[in-house]
Amino acid sequence: MPEQLLQFLVTGVTVGAVYALVGLGFALIYNASDVVNFAQGEFVMLGALLAIALLGTGLSLPLAALAAILITVLVGLLLERVAIEPALGAPVVSTIIITIGAAMVLRGAALLLWGKDFHTLPSFSGDAPLNLGGATLLPQSLWVLGVTALLVLLVRAFFNRTLLGKALLACSCNRAAAQLVGINVRVMLRLAYGLSAGLGAVAGILIAPITFSSYDAGVMLGLKGFSAAIVGGIGHPLGAVVGGLLLGVLEALGAGLISSGYKDAIAFLFVLMVLFFEPTGLFGAASAERV
C-alpha cells in the first residue's frame, strides 16, 4: 500500500507540473493586463505541433524545439498586435472574449495544418522507466519537473528583481499611472504575450512525448492550467505552480484511492472549496493588497 501511495504521488506531481506550466502562462498575461488569456492552451498546442512538424523536416530535436518556441512567440506577438492592441481601451471582459475568439482561430488553423490526428514527439532521454522506491516514473517527467522549477524561479525573479518585470506589474496595477511614469504600456503588453506564448510552447514541447498533441489538445490543458492558476491565486507565479501540483496530486489520489470515475469531480470540487474559503486563491492575499 505505501508503495502504491508513492506511485499516486509521483503520478500526481508529474501531471501537476504540466498544469503548473500552463498556469504560469496565465499568470504572466494576467499580471500585465488583468486579462485571463483563454488562448494560453492553444500556445501549448502550437508549441508541441510546431516542434513535431519541424522535427519531421529533418531538424534535430533541440533545434526544432527552439524554432517552435520562437515561432509560437511570434504568433503570440502577432495575436497581441492584431487582436488585443486595437481593443486597448476596451473593458477587461471584452479582451477576454477576444482571447476566446483567438483560441478558436488558432485551433482552426492547427486543424487545417495538421489534421485531426494525434502527433507525438520522441522522449528527450529514452523511455526506460526509472525506479523510485517501488514507484516508477519516466525520464521525461524529470524533464517536465526540472524545467518547470527553473521557469518558475526565472519568472519569479523577473517580476521581483528586474525593472522590466516591475514595469509589467505596474501596468496591471494601474495602466494610466504606469503610462504617466513613462512605461510604454503597448510594449509591456507585447512583452507579456510574447513571453507567455513562449512559456506555453515550452510546456507543450516538454509534455508532447508523454501526452501527445493534437489541434484540440489546448482546450483541456487550458482549463486545467486555468484552474491551477485560480487555486494558487491568479497572477501569482508560485501560486500557479502550487495550485497545479495540488490539483495533479488530488486527481491521482482521487483516482487511486476513491474512484477513477470521479477523479475530475474531486479535483474541481477542491477548486470550488478553495474559491469558497479563499476567494483570492491560496497565494492571492498579495494581489488583493496590490489592487
Partner: peptide, 20 residues
C-alpha cells in the same frame, strides 16, 4: 473496473491499482 477521462494525460494511478 477502472475509468479515465478521454482527455486525461496520465492513467498510471488507475494502472497502479490494477497492478495490485
Amino acid at each position: 473496473d477502472e475509468f479515465y477521462g478521454n482527455k486525461d494525460t496520465d492513467m498510471s494511478a488507475q494502472l497502479a491499482k490494477i497492478r495490485a
